[in-house]
Nucleic acid binder design. Structure first.
Lengths: 222, 222
DNA sequence: ACCTGAACACCGTTCAAGT
DNA sequence: ACCTGAACACCGTTCAAGT
């Protein structure tokens, strides 16, 4: 697969290699492992060389992030024939799945809101679906912004905390130490927790889409 | 303020002082500034001394996090007479506000789900409200888990990225470079973006609460 | 002209040495 | 017995020196 947005400037080959290697590191070892030293070593180079292609670590990360949006765009499911609800669900799930596939990638999106070319294309596509389905400009803007934050917020929380075995053990132990009189509600629902991550995500997503459908009715009637 | 010598158990005063100082640093300089060296220097001490009170940086952060839950608990609004919708809204807003007041604090909650005593009390209180209002155990568990993730997900994204002036300038510049033919939907809603953060948060929260009210009806009728 | 080793000022963690 | 300076193995960034 070729790059969607090519710079066509000096250092482009090296530039390519750096981004590819960076994503590989994020995939295999998480966001914390993406250090300039680690990255340079993977390419048998030194950190100083990286500064020939990128102004700073932050700038490099911004381009890594846009790569992820390019990948999302390339593997985007077909939503043309679907209703807006189903389209929203698929787009949100697709973004969520992509971020989860690249382990700690979601954490890279925190610092700065994605502004790269591929992120812009994705926003355009999403807004167009809403506007073509009777959403007013203010409602479409709100719906898109909130849903995008929702997906990213969940993806961040599910991104890196790999050692669920150890965490779940601690959680279970803490629950067992609770006494009935002080924590009746917690113990009453204890069999339901913790929820599978995907289920938690889908549950909240459906709540929001349902709420949007109600707002849309009033929006259109007005 | 001078350092007091503890008469009773060893390190207890120092333990207190460390947590207080840590929160002060997070408030004033953000989560990134909370380094052990920075923390030790604030107390005219060395990093090694910190390891006398805390097993690791991670353990220290876990206790800082539970301090925030304690603060939330202490300033919790009265929700006894309110309906569950209004109670949910107030609890979610309160958690969001508390996390925002301590600038980068939300980022400290990512690594491990809060397990401290004060976090447990807060969960008990929230679950009890849902269960006392006709929610079944499965629905209450889902509602609580999803809302808690929602609040934290938003708080994280609004936590540290302080330089909104520079960011907004970049965003505006990027928007101006767009051409109408390629980005019609984006340009159509451009006047609506970016939304104020609180509005975005409230918008999504209301969507979820509305969706929950529908699920609750079926839940109770069953 | 292009590249990079080495330095600088940081980071979390450990432990031998000091009191 | 208690504390901590100093070391260790890292980090992002810079620049003089090498090719």
């Amino acid at each position: 697969m070729s790059t969607r947005v090519s710079p066509g400037r000096p250092f482009s080959v090296s530039h390519e290699l750096i981004l590819t290697t960076a994503i590989q590191i994020v995939d295999e070892e998480g966001a914390d492992a993406l250090t300039l030293r680690r990255l340079a070593k993977s390419m048998n180079s030194g950190t100083a060389t990286l500064y020939r292609n990128f102004e700073s670590r932050e700038a490099l990360i911004a381009q890594v992030v846009d790569r992820l949006f390019a990948e999302m765009e390339a593997s985007m499911p077909e939503v043309a024939g679907l209703g807006w609800k189903q389209a929203c669900r698929m787009l949100a799930n697709h973004m969520f799945t992509t971020l989860r596939r690249h382990r700690g990638a979601a954490q890279l999106l925190i610092k700065a809101i994605p502004n790269g070319p591929n992120a812009m294309i994705q926003r355009e596509r999403s807004l167009a679906i809403l506007l073509n389905n009777g959403f007013s400009a203010p409602l479409a803007a709100r719906a898109y912004a909130t849903l995008a934050r929702y997906v990213l917020g969940f993806a961040i929380q599910f991104s890196d905390n790999g050692a669920s075995g150890e965490d779940d053990a601690k959680q279970a132990e803490a629950f067992h130490r609770l006494d009935w009189s002080a924590f009746p509600a917690t113990l009453f629902v204890i069999g339901e927790l913790p929820l599978p991550l995907d289920e938690e995500f889908s549950f909240g997503l459906d709540l929001m889409i349902y709420g949007l459908s109600e707002l849309r009715k009033n929006d259109s009637n007005k």
